[in-house]
Design a protein around this nucleic acid. Structure first.
Lengths: 314, 314
DNA sequence: ATTAATTACGTAAGTGCTTACGTAAATGTA
DNA sequence: TACATTTACGTAAGCACTTACGTAATTAAT
């Protein structure tokens, strides 16, 4: 008991199982009390049946939320007990329609008191609690249907890891990382061009000295992303050489480093940030949209691979 | 889903199990996400261990609320994985002390992020609910520890069945039942005496005609209890011939029919109800106590079997 | 100092479900 | 009209536990 408070919410599943086990364990004793010759595990199937209307195995399974083999098994057991009658489907020879036999209907009748007593026992116990277990389960069922626990945990993971990402100013020590991160995606989709070599091999000369800026994203002491601002003739900046290592995808690094660049451009008094990209890079384009960029048509680009131009007015 | 609302609270156990299954099913995927090479089922045992302090199999089992074979099995699996070290007890050769190996401690370290993320994912989800599942489970654990579900259901059964018990006035048609019910317990513990035959064979003459009264308890259209009020010289009544069929025990019939007699005595203006019994009849004596009777010493009784006298002042 | 009872723990088998898989019937497609 | 696909359902095996049982080691009782 104490253990579960220490492990915390991680043990929610186990704790639920233990509680349910405690309850179903008592169920057997309760059936005895009412001298109903029915195994507790049969209850869902048994209760779903009627003496008049037959139901197929799959129908029952869907209704009670078990698998069909489980229902199939239970039906066989109920059948040897003589509580149900099986009838092959007439129009559909695969189906096996199950209905309550007279003996089964009899047991069902006798069970009514038990059902009533159990219901009121539980309802009375529930009144002693402040937190309604029945409703809480319902809410969780809804919650998990909406978004799985896995997805929720993934989101938490992302939040935690994003907090460990730092956006820092470029220093000469980052040159090789800056080149490598960019070369990686350029060669994957396109080919390195003359302007790429200039900017990546000599960022000091071709970017910084011209009044530009470079940011490096660091995650767990390793550079995993980069982005540059290159001054344009109109007083604005071009956002270029945006790169995120595939190993660090999903941490929102693109957004963080892009936003850092935009903030810097604004701080430097620019009115506009411009960029060129390629529509094949779907993730990149959608990131730019998220950052506020909109498609424009401007003067032709020096880059072969550019087939889309975007801008963001500050 | 709909099925569970129809079956009502009876399905509380199943519903809990299904929810817990949904959660533990996701657990495996979550472990994958963090690349922790640990089976979810190992978690409770694994988490209970430390690298310095060894714990015996039974200790672990008690702590996490599983059985010792389950722990034994898990430890063997963790052992072949190299995550734990087993050490025979030095003072007690039966014990098998388990501690985390360096490799195990390593995994434990790596798991911390996962634990944190799962905890905050669940806590965040919980904030979206109105009924706190975690607390609700805690309350139910407490509730069931206090009084088992079986006991609670038994109480409901008793309440429901007691409502079906009716206390009615004696009519001549009840004479044989009146006699049989009393003869049953008298011959079981003692022997029939002269006064018994008189009262049971001729209740009209020996009880009613003298200004006495008889009540019959009827349950499911069958007489299952009886009790008589016989007028005494002092203006009070003697409570006598109280009998409840063993087949109808536990329905509180003794109390109901006793109370009916007391009410009647009061209505007839009596100041005192008196009775004689035997201390061997523990259940009867405690019932009389519950009805308000106290032990007294009075004149000797005509009945051989009487060894205790009680009275209730109205 | 024996003998009996208790405790620790391992192995085997059972439980109430599940997934995996196979077969026959029904349905869709060319 | 033949073929592939889907559906219904049964059987087998697996899963994560449990209970049942047997065997040492320890402790209590005589």
């Amino acid at each position: 008991m104490d253990f579960y408070t220490r492990t915390g919410k991680m043990a929610l599943g186990s704790r639920l199982r233990r509680l349910s086990e405690q309850m179903t364990e008592q169920a057997a004793a309760i059936y005895d009390l009412y001298q109903v010759d029915l195994q507790p595990k049969w209850f869902p199937v048994f209760y779903s049946l009627s003496p008049t209307e037959g139901k197929s195995i799959t129908d029952i399974a869907r209704e009670i939320g078990h698998t069909h083999p489980s229902v199939s098994q239970t039906v066989r057991e109920l059948s040897t007990k003589g509580y149900v009658i099986e009838k092959k489907g007439e129009t559909d020879g695969r189906k096996n329609f199950i209905l309550l036999s007279p003996a089964g209907a009899d047991v069902r009748e006798k069970m009514q008191d038990q059902l009533d007593d159990v219901t009121s026992a539980i309802e009375k116990a529930m009144k002693e609690t402040h937190n309604d277990l029945w409703r809480a389960i319902g809410e969780w069922e809804f919650l998990l249907e909406q978004k799985s626990l896995l997805r929720r945990v993934q989101e938490e993971q992302k939040i935690r890891e994003s907090a460990q990402v730092q956006i820092i100013d470029y220093t000469p020590a980052h040159q090789s990382a800056f080149r490598q991160l960019n070369e990686e995606w350029i060669t994957k989709y396109f080919r390195m061009e003359e302007s790429d070599y200039k900017a990546l091999d000599h960022p000091q000369e071709y970017i910084l000295d011209k009044g530009g800026h470079i940011y490096i994203a660091v995650y767990k002491d390793e550079p995993v992303g980069a982005c540059a601002l290159i001054p344009m003739d109109d007083g604005g900046f071009e956002l270029a050489k945006m790169a995120v290592s595939p190993r660090a995808q999903g941490l929102g690094i693109g957004y963080l480093i892009g936003q850092a660049c935009i903030d810097k451009a604004r701080a430097l008094g620019a009115r506009r940030v411009y960029l060129e990209s390629n529509t094949a890079l779907k993730a990149a384009i959608s990131l730019y949209h998220k950052l506020g960029f909109r498609k424009v048509t401007g003067p032709p680009s020096p880059y072969e691979r550019a087939n889309i131009q975007m801008e963001l007015m500050l």
